[in-house]
């Protein structure tokens, strides 16, 4: 079987399916931490998260090759996503089945509407009524405190599963929006809505921490 134009992770996945243990270890070292971080966004403990991600890897390895991969049947539609996004989608589906928590984009405004003047205000329609205050050196010191990572993790989880998952993949692990959307089984515009709401939720939490709001 020719591996053709396979590169990077797709090549490694092909090698895994041929039984190459080293290829599997390489894939795991590259992507397992992000996948576990994703699984931890749903309720449950670390053991459940590891179990789900392990199952997702095994599901992908036993699945038929996606379009563009060596051994893929011609009928498989084009547009297959990255290897890590496909494993992540299996994690999303398993966690959703286990918890019945569905991922949905928010339909409320991103920023608290009370922080703006009303649209009908004669002088400042839709402008900030309660603008953010600049974060100066004190904020920088607070953000570099040793306990800040733990606080960020806690605040991220408090945003809810969908927002936490979007932040985890896009902003913590720097996956592309396309991969994040595929991983969470959401259309790209919904993923961006989630991301906007999540970033604002976390910014507001930090603002409360820094400004003592």
């Amino acid at each position: 079987m020719s591996t053709g134009a396979l590169t990077g992770d797709d090549w490694l996945l092909h090698a895994c399916r041929e039984g190459d243990k080293a290829a599997f270890v390489t894939l795991v070292r590259r992507h397992h931490p992000a996948l576990v971080a994703l699984a931890r966004c749903w309720p449950g403990d670390a053991h459940e998260a590891q179990h789900e991600v392990r199952g997702a890897w095994m599901t992908l390895l036993s699945a038929a090759p996606a379009a563009g991969q060596a051994g893929a049947p011609a009928a498989v539609p084009a547009g297959a996503t990255s290897v890590r996004a496909r494993v992540a989608r299996e994690v999303t589906r398993a966690a959703t089945r286990r918890t019945n928590v569905l991922l949905q984009a928010p339909d409320e405004p991103i920023v608290d509407p009370d922080r703006f003047f009303p649209r009908v205000n004669e002088l400042w329609p839709d402008e900030w009524a309660d603008p953010p205050r600049p974060w100066g050196p004190i904020a920088a010191r607070r953000l570099s405190r040793a306990d800040m990572p733990r606080l960020l993790v806690r605040r991220t989880r408090e945003l809810g599963v969908a927002r936490a998952a979007a932040l985890t993949l896009r902003d913590i692990h720097a996956w592309s929006v396309l991969e994040c959307a595929a991983a969470l089984d959401l259309p790209e515009p919904q993923l961006r809505s989630l991301l906007g709401a999540a970033r604002e939720g976390l910014r507001a939490a930090l603002e409360a921490e820094i400004d003592n709001r």
Partner: peptide, 30 residues
């Protein structure tokens, strides 16, 4: 700026390592 700072702070949360016992279990399953 605050949104950018928030995004920047998150990058420090990235976990890169796979603990050896976890890796061993995965390889065993593989």
């Amino acid at each position: 700026e605050q949104v950018r700072t928030t995004i920047g702070a998150l990058t420090h949360l990235r976990e890169e390592n796979v603990p050896q016992p976890v890796l061993d279990e995965l390889v065993e399953a593989f």
